[in-house]
Design a binder for these strands. Structure first.
Lengths: 227, 227
DNA sequence: CACGTTAATTCCACGATGCTGAATATTCAT
DNA sequence: ATGAATATTCAGCATCGTGGAATTAACGTG
């Protein structure tokens, strides 16, 4: 545990709790640090843009550079929270393992999941990752997002599958990726952009290809009713 | 400039730019730091909750503790930006010095201001502070916000003035606080909560008490038209 | 406006603290 | 299962951050 890092971040939280600004002495007292040490820490934060000083004011104010970081952290946290009810509805409707996934770097990241309670079920924990091309949900992202497609190598045989996905609005997988596992995925779209994908995964003998279109339609309905 | 603090915050930004998560090696390379140093910094951030590790994953993810800080920093920055046009409209309408103020700790903080160009005008710079009780805009906050009222000592003679303010939706000051200066303030309300206040301040002989109601109405109009 | 008081900033020397290279353990891919 | 890549632990040393003391600046008051 690096002392100065811990202290610096603590100072930022103190500033936040003071409504965005405070005096050096107040801060040092709240943090239980000597004034020069606090000064040193704060001025480092000022130099980096995380803290600002406005006008002739001697007070320290929270800067907005922290928003660079928060925008990304917040996106995921808020999205997970907002879409939790949708995920629960999908679980209610299917009794199978359901996922909420977002793109992260070059692959797919499971932001949230509810694991089926049936005797035979697909494992699913938030935090897992799968490749972009090798999963229904990943292909769904590729089909919807051109910039993602541009920086991912897409094998030719998948290409026309992506067209089908874009047309129908859902992606499927029948025991292609993992033996015995079928999956259907539908997109969550805001302002024309696919921000996340929902997936249902089940044993291949329970979730047969003939049920794909109906299940996808059902998932679309659940999404519509939660908008 | 404290090295470890600078480095730690840099790592957070790298994580943000990587879409919220990345591997230790990637991070260390991007940051141009040795792997153990990066490891040490990241694990400090993990211990503090600014970075998380999910599931059995060896990757590092942005945590949501940063949102504690960002919520406050973002509030101010976004509010100022969003309400700038309203402030400008008020300046257009009055040609007097206009303020945008928010509560900060136990007093009022001027988030933004446009100073009048008239020969005789009230000075106004963003970053200045006034006490909660001793200003029209402060009383406006006290009248609208019970929790603010609870933690501020309000002299009895001001008490019934607060009732009037709550009823009429504006606060005034005619040469009470600063000699020769009159002011009118109206609230900016979102979701039933007063987030900020707008103030117009002018020499007492230009802005006489008989003009208060009309000016307040005009300010209310400008606010309505910018919703 | 000058004075006294309080807060903020600079400086420096000491000593703890965090950095790095090397070794070990773990994870991942095949 | 095996090897390669990645992550974690460790410890010695140099560095960096800390806090006391002194200086300067801001603030409030009579």
């Amino acid at each position: 545990m690096i002392q100065s890092v811990s202290r610096a971040l603590h100072l930022l939280e103190i500033l936040a709790r003071s409504g965005g600004s405070a005096r050096l002495k107040e801060i040092s007292e709240t943090a239980v640090l000597t004034v020069p040490t606090t000064h040193n820490l704060l001025n480092t934060l000022v130099a980096l843009g995380y803290v600002r000083r406005r006008g002739g004011d001697t007070r320290y104010h929270l800067g907005d550079r922290i928003l660079n970081i928060a925008r990304v952290a917040g996106n995921d946290a808020q999205l997970r929270e907002r879409l939790r009810p949708v995920l629960e509805a999908m679980y209610e409707a299917t009794s199978e393992t359901v996922f909420l996934a977002v793109p992260s770097g070059d692959d797919i990241y499971f932001l949230d999941a509810i694991e089926s309670h049936q005797l035979l079920h697909v494992a699913g924990q938030p935090g897992e990752r799968v490749s972009m091309t090798g999963s229904a949900i990943g292909q769904l992202f590729l089909a919807h997002n051109a910039s993602l497609r541009a920086r991912t190598y897409v094998p030719p045989d998948i290409q026309h599958e992506l067209d089908r996905i874009a047309r129908d609005g859902y992606a499927t997988d029948h025991e292609q990726v993992f033996a015995g596992i079928s999956a259907v995925a539908v997109p969550w779209i805001e302002d024309g952009e696919m921000l996340a994908g929902f997936g249902v995964a089940a044993p291949g003998n329970r979730l047969t290809p003939d049920r794909f279109p109906k299940l996808a339609a059902e998932m679309h309905n659940i999404i519509s009713s939660h908008r």
